[in-house]
Design a protein around this nucleic acid. Structure first.
Length: 159
DNA sequence: AGAATGACGGACC
DNA sequence: AGGTCCGCCATTC
């Protein structure tokens, strides 16, 4: 799989696709692993971090460092966040927070490789290719899903 | 090969 | 809180 794209409307998306993937054919999302992943995600299901491994992402164009950052990021669970610096540390490059930002800016598969879960030091909201607002929306969505799930459990415990 | 460029982080004002 | 400066580091030109 090459990339994840999204736009505000079908028209805009098709315009973008016409430039990046001319002649692309449409298929049923349920027919491919990435499609099923995104369907489940938008459904609010908490997808286990390991599920990303089942998607045939095309790492060919990634540098060694980018591959490391993206793979490490894929381990961050639904609804949780991590700092650029912490992610750098997990890649064995504690001082490379800034370089991590550069790598994330080139993430070909947003949402699947959850770059929206990477926040600035102290939880500060910074950067995102599609805009901070989109990043907030995704994080809020995940948090809401977690809260609802927690509510269900509590309800069950109470009776 | 060297300089410029960021989705950083921390210090300081 | 908000703005500047500077050290960091992988990439890019």
């Amino acid at each position: 799989m090459q990339s994840v794209e999204w736009e505000r409307s079908r028209e805009e998306l098709e315009a973008v696709l016409a430039g990046t993937l001319p002649g692309a054919k449409e298929i049923d999302p349920a027919e491919c692993s990435a499609g099923r992943f995104l369907l489940a995600y938008s459904d609010g299901r908490q997808i286990p971090a390991g599920a990303v491994a089942a998607i045939p992402l095309d790492w060919a164009l990634a540098s060694g460092f980018q591959r490391m950052v993206w793979k490490e990021l894929a381990k961050v669970p639904f609804g949780e966040t991590i700092t650029y610096g912490e992610l750098a540390a997990r890649c064995g490059r504690g001082e490379a927070a800034r370089a991590v930002g550069a790598a994330l800016a080139r993430n070909p598969w947003p949402v699947i490789v959850p770059c929206h879960r990477v926040v600035g030091a102290g939880g500060r909201m910074v950067g995102f290719g599609k805009g901070i607002a989109a990043k907030r929306t995704l994080l809020a969505f995940e948090k809401r899903c977690l809260d609802e799930a927690a509510g269900c459990i509590k309800k069950r415990q109470n009776g």
